[in-house]
């Protein structure tokens, strides 16, 4: 039998009894970042394939909300900082070893891109929109010329943003649950899936919704595959990672994870989307909202469970 006690007494908030440094702000931001990445990726993809009129919701309508959700996400990140007045130090260096540093720079690039993309389509979405000032109109015509370049940049940076939301966690070898490179692709695919769900929500065109339901089905299948692989990897790894997996296999996060994320967030919407594709009538917003719900729960549960997994004591 072995007993380990800190006899001098240690109750540092944020560390004891287990890590407690990141709260709702971080998973909320990871969800919004992934959502923004998903929407922008499909907007750029369908624009570059020349299908902007067939896929109007994905290319033109859904990107309208991206600047808003990115601003909310960035604000949540700012709220999380404990030394807020010093936040600008993030933009005085580029530290490639630190995922948070290059993530901050990625956001610095993709946030303006999302504003430009929304501005380029705002007149089509809101026909009564008026820029009011001539210089704003000049800026719009200037960017109109480089729309293809912007779309390419958006496609590339949205993938980086989606992967980064997962790498942020997986870079910490001190937290065995997070320390798996599967989190990068898992969060990217989950982000793309929430992006398709948003496109479905905004779309009024049956064909467009059908295409996105098909894409979403594929993404959900990949996500399930990655989740299974994540657990296989953990269970075949060291004791600390086996302990991390056991948080979900009998531990405190078993019910929330398998019910809220896997059943409600992945399998149920996948079944509904499949039923709709074989001509059953199902209100489209139900699977779409379930996918968004699953995306947010995945990040919340992984953020909190990861802080419970550790090496010592």
């Amino acid at each position: 039998m072995r007993e380990e006690l800190i006899v001098s007494g240690r109750m540092n908030p944020f560390i004891d009894p287990h890590l407690n440094i990141w709260h709702w702000q971080i998973p909320l931001y990871l969800f919004l970042g992934g959502l923004a990445a998903g929407i922008l990726f499909f907007a750029a993809l369908f624009y570059l394939r020349g299908k902007e009129n067939e896929y109007r919701a994905a290319v033109k309508i859904a990107p309208m909300i991206v600047p808003i959700i990115l601003i909310i996400g960035l604000f949540a990140l700012f709220l999380d900082l404990k030394h807020k007045a010093y936040f600008w130090h993030l933009y005085t260096v580029i530290r490639l070893q630190s995922p948070m540093s290059w993530g901050a720079w990625t956001l610095m690039i993709i946030t303006p891109l999302s504003f430009i993309w929304a501005a380029l389509h705002i007149k089509e979405v809101f026909p009564k929109w008026d820029w009011k000032y001539q210089w704003l109109k000049d800026i719009e015509t200037f960017f109109q010329k480089y729309k293809k370049v912007i779309a390419w940049l958006m496609a590339i940076y949205s993938v980086i943003l989606g992967v980064y939301t997962g790498i942020l966690f997986s870079a910490f070898n001190a937290r065995p649950l997070w320390n798996t490179s599967i989190l990068g692709p898992l969060f990217l695919v989950s982000g793309l899936s929430t992006g398709t769900a948003t496109a479905i929500l905004f779309s009024k065109n049956h064909e467009e919704r059908k295409t996105f339901a098909r894409i979403d089905l594929l993404l959900i299948a990949i996500e399930l595959f990655l989740i299974v692989h994540m657990f296989m990897g953990f269970l075949a790894s060291t004791q600390v990672q086996i302990d991390a997996a056991n948080l979900f296999l009998g531990g405190p996060y078993t019910a929330p994870f398998w019910m809220l994320v896997v059943a409600m967030g992945l399998i149920f919407p996948a079944v509904l989307e499949a039923l709709e594709l074989i001509k059953f009538r199902i209100p489209v917003y139900i699977p779409a909202i379930l996918v968004l719900f699953g995306g947010i729960m995945l990040r919340f549960i992984l953020a909190y469970a990861g802080q419970m997994s550790r090496w010592l004591y």
Binding site: F14, I15, D16, L19, I21, W22, D80, L81, K82, H83, K84, Y86, F87, H89, L90, S98, M100, A171, F172, N173, A174, R175, Q307, R310, W311, L312
Partner: peptide, 13 residues
Amino acid sequence: IGCGACIASCPYD
């Protein structure tokens, strides 16, 4: 900036 990344990264807490 108090982001907490280092606190999360330390296996020795």
